[in-house]
């Protein structure tokens, strides 16, 4: 098990370095950064001065090494727009995004897994149909549209929940539902398919032959095996929620990291964009790593491979 974890950790670090290089190169792919900073009315002298000030005249690898070294110490430079350290900016925004992401994935898991299990235990029953309907609707409905519907109903018509902002837990209810509902269909269908497959396995019959109760058969013997692919999926969804909740953050005016990324792209605020890409990528890497470890714990066969 320890060997497995170390191997995966090594792999994760390798991927992290690759990603850091790619996100750094974006600075140069987007054109000459000095011109972008100098603005439209700058003359050649201003641009040259800026180029020297920011060190853009040095070889790219040297700049990368410096950037990476600073990044490792959580120093991502200054935001061009806010004139503030990028690290502080992200740290402030990330708390909103993390809260939203964690709530979103929990909402998705807590609705999708039980629904998937029940749907698998009673295939073609009413509850299976309802679960199927919910998952088709969730997949077909764009987040922004579902978010707007919720705002119209619960904020404007009924006045139960605030439509925008992030100042209390009540502000997070609708965004959580919208974000979680987006992830729910895939998790539910994977749980259902996994449970259906596992329930017909010989070892489930063995468990019943031992005299195990139905609840024990379902949760201890079946779900433990059926949940393995769901863990990997949920990790990817979680990474997506932390990086890609831009739409939801915009609709509900939650000023999180996703919203910051969207703003910064528009403002050509490259240090912020670079740092955000790196942070989002790291989230994916961390969650994939955690999912691998969790899966190895759930499925002993994975440890030896």
């Amino acid at each position: 098990m320890l060997r497995f974890i170390l191997k995966r950790l090594g792999l994760a670090i390798l991927v992290a370095f690759t990603v850091s290089f790619i996100s750094f190169s974006l600075l140069f792919l987007a054109g000459d950064p000095a011109i972008a900073i100098a603005g439209e009315n700058a003359n050649a002298e201003d641009i040259a001065a800026i180029r020297e000030l920011y060190g853009f005249d040095r070889p790219m690898l040297v700049q990368y090494a410096e950037w990476l070294w600073n990044a490792l110490r959580f120093d991502f430079g200054q935001s061009y727009y806010f004139r503030l350290p990028v690290a502080d900016l992200i740290a402030e925004r990330l708390s909103v995004t993390m809260t939203l992401g964690v709530c979103g994935i929990l909402f998705a898991l807590l609705t999708a897994v039980p629904l998937g299990v029940i749907a698998a235990i009673r295939p073609n029953s009413l509850i299976d149909r309802i679960a199927l309907f919910l998952s088709v609707a969730g997949q077909a409905m764009p987040s922004f549209w579902f978010g707007l519907i919720l705002i119209v109903v619960f904020a404007i018509q009924l006045g139960w929940l605030p439509a925008s902002g992030a100042s209390s837990w009540r502000h997070f209810i609708m965004p959580t539902v919208v974000l979680g509902y987006y992830a729910m269909p895939a998790i539910m269908r994977l749980t259902r398919a996994g449970m259906l497959e596992v329930l017909s396995a010989d070892y489930i019959r063995t468990a019943r032959a031992k005299g195990a109760s139905e609840g024990r058969v379902m949760f201890k013997h079946a779900l433990r095996n059926a949940i393995i692919p769901v863990v990997s999926l949920a990790a990817v969804q979680m990474g997506f929620m932390l990086g890609g909740s831009i739409v939801v953050e915009s609709i509900f005016a939650l000023h999180g990291a996703g919203f910051l990324a969207w703003e910064s792209i528009g403002r050509n605020d490259l240090p912020t964009v670079q740092a955000l890409i790196l942070v989002f990528a790291l989230f994916y890497i961390i969650f994939t790593f955690l999912a691998d470890v969790l899966n190895a714990w759930l499925d002993p066969r994975m440890r030896s491979s």
Partner: peptide, 24 residues
């Protein structure tokens, strides 16, 4: 349930798949 496994047991045809892969 109280009879199965306690007073009457069964051995199956498929030893390769009759044990739960997740438990020791």
């Amino acid at each position: 349930r109280h009879l199965r496994g306690a007073r009457m047991s069964m051995i199956f045809q498929e030893p390769m798949t009759s044990l739960n892969p997740a438990y020791t």
